[in-house]
């Protein structure tokens, strides 16, 4: 098979701006995203979801143009044969089981029943939800809902996968499995575009990073250039578990832990670490040692400080 021309293997933004009335979504964004794992990183309101919605035609640019592998988002028939999007919205059509959800939306492609069934089971298998496939989504945990959304996004085998905060709400083991799946998909030559408001999180998985702040792209490039600087900046993580005090005793096995304190409600532990990667690996062991970990979520609301740190406090070019 002949590889697509370079132009058609990129996700391109040409001087794209989007305003919501008088509120800025993104401004003058020009990007060319190659295959591999690309992370859009920025604090809440920085424009990550706006960029993703622009890529998938859920919103239109006020100015400029977007092309996904040469296809405009105005042409959904071609676009969504290429693109799968797992949004941040934690909502599902009512009354459907996991399998019905994926199968029903695959039928919208106009494919026969057998093909849709086969693709549905394959996608469900990839996110390891086979056992829960026939249960109603309304009864799923947050992590299961994230995974079924991911399965729906990958079910039709898209070349471009757009994932908005896909690791939110996943426990450490599933998080590791999901990251492995992203790597697998990227290794197959696909675009995997992931958003996160936590730089440390995507550091582990990205080939390239696009940093956003207040609707502007403030930095983009290979992750290696940013990694050492990121590592110096401590990150705060909230772990919800049944025995936070016992967990606190365990986390100090790592010298990269800066601080650990019990959450005010007594049901969790706030940890500040300089090496999130090592900390997540340690959590995997702890989870196997009998502490019941309910959820792990970055609690660093001060992502802006990371930006100031990275870009020297410089105001994005307005």
């Amino acid at each position: 098979m002949t590889p697509p021309p370079v132009e058609e293997s990129l996700v391109r933004f040409e001087n794209v701006s989007r305003f919501y009335g008088e509120v800025l979504g993104v401004n003058r964004v020009t990007l060319a995203i190659p295959p591999g794992i690309t992370s859009l990183v920025g604090p809440n309101g920085s424009g990550k979801t706006t960029l993703m919605n622009l890529m998938t035609g859920l919103i239109r640019p006020t100015r400029g143009s977007v092309r996904i592998l040469g296809v405009t988002p105005e042409d959904p028939e071609k676009l969504f044969a290429l693109v799968g999007y797992s949004t941040q919205f934690d909502a599902f059509p009512k009354g459907l089981s996991g399998f019905q959800f994926i199968y029903s939306f695959l039928r919208l492609f106009g494919w026969p029943r057998e093909k849709c069934e086969r693709l549905s089971w394959r996608a469900i298998g990839r996110v390891r939800l086979n056992d829960a496939a026939h249960r109603k989504i309304a009864g799923y945990s947050k992590g299961m809902r994230q995974r079924i959304k991911l399965a729906q996004a990958i079910a039709h085998d898209p070349r471009v996968l757009v994932l908005d905060e896909p690791l939110n709400g996943l426990d450490p083991l599933v998080r590791a499995e999901t990251i492995a799946l992203f790597r697998e998909l990227a290794a197959e030559g696909r675009h995997v575009i992931v958003s996160s408001h936590v730089l440390h999180e995507v550091d582990l998985i990205s080939d390239q990073v696009i940093l956003l702040s207040n609707g502007y792209v403030v930095a983009e490039g290979k992750i290696q250039g940013l990694r050492s600087e990121i590592c110096d900046h401590p990150m705060q993580i909230l772990i919800r578990c049944n025995r936070p005090a016992a967990l606190a005793a365990r986390v100090f096995e790592l010298d990269s832990i800066v601080e650990a304190r019990l959450h005010a409600d007594g049901g969790g532990l706030l940890v500040k670490t300089r090496d999130a990667g090592r900390f997540y690996r340690l959590l995997n062991h702890i989870a196997l040692d009998g502490i019941d970990i309910e959820s792990v979520a970055p609690a660093d609301d001060n992502v802006n400080s990371v930006y100031e740190y990275l870009i020297g406090g410089e105001e994005p070019g307005k």
């Binding site: 998938t56 035609g57 859920l58 959904p76 028939e77 071609k78 676009l79 969504f80 044969a81 693109v83 799968g84 999007y85 949004t87 919205f89 909502a91 599902f92 059509p93 009512k94 939306f105 919208l108 492609f109 106009g110 729906q152």
Partner: peptide
């Protein structure tokens, strides 16, 4: 939940 429809090639 409308976006699921709008993200299909239809």
């Amino acid at each position: 939940s409308l976006h699921y429809y709008l993200l299909a090639p239809i």
